[in-house]
Design a binder for these strands. Structure first.
Length: 299
DNA sequence: AAAACAACCAACCGCCCTCGG
DNA sequence: GCCGAGGGCGGTTGGTTGTTT
């Protein structure tokens, strides 16, 4: 590592002014931490000089914000955080810094990396664009419920299932709370003109997205996605999806995402009756999902 | 055991915006 | 209004680590 950085030096004459690149050393980190502790952040170019760092101001800022700042949270993203990222990304797109503001201790870089390495991997496996409507539907129908299940399993095992008719895990798996702004594409999003009382996701009830024919029987990933229900989403009352999240943390759905969308009229639906009832066995073979897609082990 | 592959993530790059002169 | 510096942000790269064959 040090060799990489050392190789950046071009000549002894330029050494004084040459900026270091590459991985930070412990000494550099220490310098930066101590300087900021004594003088505070900001004015990064001046800070770099005054601290004696042969780094650009940008590099110092990035190192501080993404790695050295005391409140940076290390380690794997929790299911809650993952779910939040999925929902906020559906709402705001690649606004990583904005998303990061809702995940205390997480950096935009970390969230961006998570999205690229894990979320987009799923999209690749499905052979669809990660920012497509179909992928969002897949996320919504498979990934989010699974994350919710993991959340419940890890954080509130003692909770009683809301429904007495099924086991807890089955209940969670079958529940899909639709994120606000997930389907913002007017040309593909099937939106009722009035609030639906219930959304049913049996595949036979839906036409493939973008077509008028519902006849799909093959199990290619493409056809699978094409059979995803055209879930009539609804923006929820704020925090509905994250009640189990950090203690007093609520997602502020300001409906910004909907402001650009003709379906924004849906924004007042009562989400309590808006669970997507997944009849998994009726929709797709359950082993398809468990064997090939949305294997949450790697999430 | 070793090579190949995949995943992860720190760091850099370039564009854009804001602000002060 | 123009210009340059500083800073923020999203995209990308490349090294490291872990896993599979």
């Amino acid at each position: 590592m040090a060799g990489v950085a050392d190789s950046e030096y071009t000549s002894p004459n330029e050494e004084e002014n040459e900026m270091r690149k590459g991985p930070w050393t412990l000494d550099e980190d220490t310098l930066l931490i101590h300087y900021i502790a004594n003088h505070g952040e900001g004015h990064w170019n001046a800070l770099a000089k005054c601290a004696g760092l042969k780094r650009t101001g940008k590099s110092c800022r990035l190192r501080w914000l993404n790695y050295l700042k005391p409140d940076i949270k290390r380690g794997n993203l929790t299911p809650q955080e993952q779910l939040l990222i999925l929902e906020l990304h559906a709402k705001w797109g690649n606004r990583w810094s904005k998303i990061a503001q809702h995940l205390p201790g997480r950096t935009d870089n970390e969230i961006k990396n998570y999205w690229r390495t894990r979320v987009q991997k799923q999209a690749r496996q499905l052979n669809i664009e990660s920012n497509s409507k179909r992928f969002l539907d897949a996320v919504r129908c498979f990934w989010m419920p699974t994350l919710r299940q993991k959340m419940e399993q890890t954080s509130s095992l003692s909770l009683d299932p809301p429904s007495s008719s099924s086991s807890h895990s089955n209940y969670l798996t079958s529940q899909i709370s639709i994120a606000p702004s997930l389907s913002t594409s007017p040309q593909t999003c099937s939106v009722p003109s009035s609030p639906p009382s219930k959304v049913v996701s049996h595949v036979s009830d839906y036409s493939p997205i973008g077509t008028s024919s519902p006849s799909h029987n093959s199990l290619s990933s493409d056809s699978l996605i094409s059979q995803l229900p055209q879930i009539t989403e609804q923006p929820a009352s704020s925090s509905y999806a994250f009640e189990a999240l950090n203690d007093n943390y609520y997602v502020d759905y300001d409906m910004e995402g909907f402001s650009l969308d003709p379906v924004s009229e849906m924004a007042t639906f009562d989400t309590s009756q808006f669970d997507c009832q997944m009849a998994e066995s009726d929709w797709i073979p359950s082993n398809y999902m468990t064997d090939t897609l949305w294997n949450m082990q790697g999430m």
